[in-house]
Simulated assay, not measured.
Amino acid sequence: MPSLVTEPGIIHYETYGRGRPVLLLHGWLGSWALWRDTIEVLGRDFRTYALDFFGFGESGVVADRQTRRTSAYTVPIYVEMVHQFMDRMGIVKAPLIGHSMGGTVSLSMAINHPDKVVKVGVIGSPIDGNSLNFLLKLSGNPKMAAFFWLFEGRGLRVFLRGYSYFMARDGRAMSRMINKDVSMISMESFFQSIGTLRQTNLRPELGRVCVPTLGMYGQRDIIVRSSENQTLKAGVPHAQIEWFPDAGHFIMMDSPDRFINTLRTFLLSNGS
C-alpha cells in the first residue's frame, strides 16, 4: 500500500502503468477505488496515480496535528495536498482528472497552480456549491452531520445503501462501493469536506483556466445539477463539453465505454 508523508498528512495512493503521469481524484465519500477500471485502460499509455483525499480511503491527517487543525478536510487543503504530492513524487506537471469534488479540486489546481497542470478534466463536478443536491448541502451543517452520524454512522450507511440505487444504473455495485467507502470515513471528514464544497464558487476565477479542459456531465445526475456543464462552458469557453443523456453522477459506471474512450482521446490529443 504506497503512501507519502506531506505537511498536511499521509497520502495513500495507487499507481499503475508506464509513461507520462496522470492524476485521478475521487469525489466526496469516495476513494481511489472509483478509478479501478479506469487505471487499467489508461495504464497502457500513462503512469496513473489515483489518490485518496485526507479523511477518505487510507489517507489521513498527521495524528499530532489532528486536534490543532480545525479545517483539515477542505477544498483548499486538498489542493495543497495534490500540490505537495506532485512535488514529493517529482511530477513537474500532469493532467488532473477529477470526479465530483475531485474535479473541483482539479480546477482549483489549474487556477492556483497553472504551472503544474497540463490538462484538466471534470466529471459531474460542482463549479458552484449551490448546484449540490439539497441533502448534500444540509450535510455540511455540523448539527445535521451529527444527526446523520448517529450510531457511529450506521444510519447514514443504511440510508446511502438505499439511495445509491438511484445514483447509478447498477445500483447493487454502487451500493457496495459506497458502503465500503463510507465505512472508512469520520464525522469530521464527512461534514467538513461537503461543507467547504458547498461554500466553493469557482465561477469568478474560471477565466484563469488556460489549459485544455474537458467536462463530462450526465443528464440523470441527482447529486450535482447537470446544468453545471453550462457554467463550466461559460467560464472556460475553450472547454470541451461531453453530454451523457443516459448517465447520472457516476458516468464511468453508467456509460463506461464512451467514458473511457472520451477520456483517453482527450489525454492523448496534442498538448498532453
Score class of each variant (00 low, 15 high):
residue 257 D to H: 08
residue 68 R to M: 11
residue 186 S to W: 02
residue 212 P to Q: 05
residue 239 A to S: 13
residue 72 A to M: 09
residue 82 V to E: 01
residue 205 E to S: 15
residue 34 L to R: 07
residue 262 T to M: 08
residue 246 D to A: 14
residue 140 G to L: 04
residue 107 L to C: 08
residue 84 Q to H: 11
residue 93 K to T: 13
residue 19 G to M: 00
residue 116 K to S: 10
residue 249 H to V: 12
residue 83 H to P: 05
residue 214 L to P: 05
residue 248 G to M: 05
residue 127 I to G: 14
residue 218 G to C: 02
residue 15 T to W: 05
residue 190 F to G: 01
residue 82 V to G: 04
residue 157 R to D: 03
residue 184 M to H: 12
residue 16 Y to Q: 14
residue 257 D to N: 13
residue 159 F to G: 02
residue 239 A to R: 02
residue 206 L to A: 06
residue 12 H to G: 05
residue 158 V to T: 14
residue 74 T to G: 13
residue 227 S to L: 07
residue 141 N to G: 05
residue 196 T to M: 01
residue 211 V to M: 07
residue 248 G to S: 13
residue 186 S to I: 00
residue 178 I to D: 06
residue 39 I to V: 15
residue 166 F to T: 15
residue 40 E to Q: 15
residue 145 A to V: 02
residue 242 E to Y: 02
residue 87 D to T: 12
residue 226 S to K: 08
residue 263 L to P: 02
residue 202 L to C: 10
residue 130 N to E: 14
residue 46 F to L: 00
residue 105 V to W: 05
residue 109 M to D: 10
residue 15 T to C: 10
residue 13 Y to D: 04
residue 132 L to S: 07
residue 165 Y to C: 03
residue 87 D to L: 11
residue 217 Y to L: 07
residue 133 N to L: 07
residue 121 G to Q: 06
residue 137 K to S: 01
residue 243 W to H: 15
residue 24 L to W: 14
residue 183 S to H: 04
residue 235 G to V: 06
residue 19 G to Y: 00
residue 123 I to F: 05
residue 187 M to N: 14
residue 3 S to I: 06
residue 221 D to H: 09
residue 152 E to G: 10
residue 32 W to C: 00
residue 29 L to S: 14
residue 228 E to K: 07
residue 74 T to W: 10
residue 222 I to S: 06
residue 153 G to K: 08
residue 66 Q to T: 13
residue 243 W to V: 15
residue 61 V to Q: 10
residue 258 R to C: 01
residue 158 V to H: 11
residue 53 F to G: 03
residue 11 I to E: 02
residue 192 Q to T: 11
residue 264 R to C: 08
residue 72 A to F: 08
residue 8 P to M: 03
residue 199 Q to E: 15
residue 215 G to R: 00
residue 167 M to R: 05
residue 215 G to H: 02
residue 25 L to G: 00
residue 243 W to E: 14
residue 4 L to M: 08
residue 163 Y to F: 06
residue 1 M to I: 09
residue 103 G to K: 11
residue 97 I to M: 04
residue 185 I to M: 15
residue 148 F to Q: 13
residue 162 G to V: 03
residue 119 K to C: 00
residue 114 P to F: 01
residue 115 D to G: 02
residue 241 I to N: 04
residue 132 L to P: 03
residue 193 S to F: 01
residue 78 Y to M: 14
residue 56 F to S: 13
residue 31 S to E: 08
residue 74 T to N: 09
residue 81 M to F: 10
residue 81 M to Q: 15
residue 99 H to N: 12
residue 240 Q to W: 09
residue 106 S to N: 03
residue 205 E to T: 07
residue 245 P to H: 08
residue 172 R to N: 11
residue 51 L to H: 09
residue 58 E to T: 04
residue 192 Q to V: 10
residue 49 Y to P: 01
residue 193 S to T: 14
residue 250 F to N: 12
residue 269 S to M: 10
residue 238 H to L: 07
residue 135 L to S: 11
residue 204 P to I: 03
residue 3 S to F: 13
residue 42 L to W: 04
residue 247 A to K: 13
residue 175 S to D: 03
residue 206 L to D: 08
residue 90 G to N: 02
residue 265 T to L: 05
residue 191 F to E: 09
residue 152 E to V: 08
residue 55 G to Y: 06
residue 237 P to M: 03
residue 168 A to C: 12
residue 176 R to W: 05
residue 22 V to W: 14
residue 141 N to E: 12
residue 96 L to K: 06
residue 102 G to M: 00
residue 109 M to Y: 13
residue 232 L to D: 12
residue 135 L to Y: 13
residue 178 I to T: 10
